[in-house]
């Protein structure tokens, strides 16, 4: 199922890009969330898919008999999920604060740091 999954990841990436190009900050952050999911899936897939058993050694054994799912990408993705969550949570709070302070969530109306037309020699 790698090929369909690759296509799905591509689709999600495209969708996320589209969202991130939005002038609406909330849509942008939705895009980040979607892209995060796409990238996590990609790492997971890049470690090769398997329908074999999960990487849990039976409690009475020293090692798993036969093939098992690749545990390393799982650990990486787990870390990435958490980090992505931390970043997203902060970004959402920031979006709220942007609304409180600037009165808008549209990024093309946020012109405080680089005011339009003020670039003069």
């Amino acid at each position: 199922m790698e090929v369909p999954l690759a296509l799905l990841i591509g689709l999600l990436t495209g969708v996320a890009t589209w969202l991130m190009l939005s002038r609406n900050l909330i849509r942008l952050l939705l895009g980040f969330a979607v892209l995060g999911n796409a990238v996590n899936l990609l790492i997971f897939t890049a470690g090769r898919l398997t329908r074999d058993v999960p990487p849990l050694v039976p409690l009475d054994a020293e090692a798993i008999e036969g093939a098992f799912a690749n545990p390393l990408p799982q650990a990486l993705v787990l870390t990435a999920i958490v980090i992505g969550f931390g970043l997203l949570a902060f970004a959402l709070v920031l979006a709220w604060q942007a609304y409180v302070r600037l009165g808008t969530i549209r990024t093309d109306e946020m012109r405080e740091a680089e005011p339009p037309g003020e670039v003069k020699p």
Partner: peptide
Amino acid sequence: ISVGTGAIVTLLLLGVL
């Protein structure tokens, strides 16, 4: 841009696989 980005990611992943 969005379609291009998505396509590139798919191609890269298929290449890796």
